[in-house]
């Protein structure tokens, strides 16, 4: 039994503790917004927050989450109000959309630690997230836009 909280909800899971957190989230908890892309921490599609830090859930055993707080894309906001979600919509970022949960979760970490990121900060935070459709230019713009919204106090 592994106990932790997901998006502020307490969960107890009867799974093999070595099961990657990704599959526990997707298959045991039905939180399919977090995606499987590579299984070896190369693409970032599975990015979630563990106690506020970005992790690749495809390689993190669910046991690592024990007693901690996990936030997935479903918990980024309940109503699309997160400045990054609003910026993503404004810039029409997603194409196929598959990698975007991971992109957003990485970007959220970036903005928390660097609320006014430079392009170099974006390169340092986002290079671990692959997008096959090629939405990088729009992700970059949307991060700057979200930072602008936060600076103007338009968002929390």
């Amino acid at each position: 039994m592994v106990s932790f909280s997901v998006n502020k909800r307490r969960v107890n899971l009867d799974v093999d503790p070595s099961t990657p957190l990704l599959w526990a989230l997707r298959e045991n908890l039905g939180l399919t917004g977090t995606k499987y892309g590579c299984g070896i921490a190369q693409c970032g599609a599975c990015t979630v927050h563990l106690n506020g830090e970005a992790i690749r859930s495809c390689v993190a055993p669910v046991s690592r989450a024990a007693g901690k707080e996990v936030t997935t894309i479903e918990g980024l906001s309940s109503d699309l109000s997160h400045p990054l979600q609003r910026a993503w919509i404004a810039e029409d970022v997603p194409q196929c959309g598959y990698c975007q949960s991971g992109q957003l979760m990485s970007a959220a970490l970036l903005l928390r630690e660097k609320p006014q990121p430079t392009d170099e900060d974006i390169d340092e935070a986002m290079t671990g997230n692959i997008c096959r459709c090629g939405t990088y230019p729009r992700i970059r713009k949307a991060i700057h836009r979200a930072a602008g919204m936060m600076a103007k106090g338009e968002a929390r």
Partner: peptide
């Protein structure tokens, strides 16, 4: 604006 963006930024798609 694309109609499918909302559900692609909240994990619902």
């Amino acid at each position: 604006k694309r109609l499918d963006t909302s559900e692609k930024v909240n994990g619902k798609a």
